[in-house]
Amino acid sequence: MINNNTKKYIFSRGIDDYFTGVHKAYKFTSLFFKEVIKKPFHIREVINQCFEIGIRALPLITLTGFIVGIVFTKQSRPSLEDFGATSWLPSLIGIAIVRALGPLVTALICAGKVGSSIGAELGSMKVTEQIDAMEVSAINPFKYLVVTRVLATSITIPILALYCSCVGLFGSYINVHTEETSSIISFYQDAFSTISFLDIFTGVVKSIAYGLTIGLVGCYKGYNATQGTRGVGKAANQAVVLSMFLIFIEEVIIVQVSNWIRYF
């Protein structure tokens, strides 16, 4: 019996399962890229999902972006004050928010809000055989459920990130205005004078990557949920944890790559 067991696994059950998971995730991802370019496109469903996601995450992103803008400005003020350079605040905050904070804050919030709900939704569809039901009705559930949702997150999250940056800048403006009474026009002029096209471009590319990650991870975890109701909770939870983890890794990589582009 023991002999039989050791033969069956290359490493051990846990490690084997992990790498099988990697293989599955890889196949899932490549299937997405194969299916996304094939007809039918389910455009209506994509638009529906975009609205769903946007509305789900909008209030929280508004609040968080605003607070981040205010707090970040407040905290940066003293150190710039030492140099009498508070007039640099708008451009400093502008760069920080557009390049890094906006996309990252949005991605993390969406990982929590959107990723978990996608994981839970698909998870419950999986364990109640709704996905199988689609399959036997000759509807490709991967296309109808996964591709549309991943597309929706990849479209919506960049938009939300830009929106978050704007709200963050507005929060920053509120702080600057109360301290220096500068006008909103001069604030935005200052802020945008240092932001280059490349900043916005990398911000958008980054957010698309985050959107892809959140959508793919949420769908993957939900689509492969097992063990009934417990599996649904597990899928939602893992979707959040894994996508946040991947977002941080991507952040590091994208910053590195965009720095190559910036300086060469």
Partner: peptide, 13 residues
């Protein structure tokens, strides 16, 4: 096929 999945997964990783 399971073993192959593990190996492919390992290589991807």
């Amino acid at each position: 096929s399971n073993k192959r999945a593990v190996i492919v997964g390992l290589f991807i990783f």
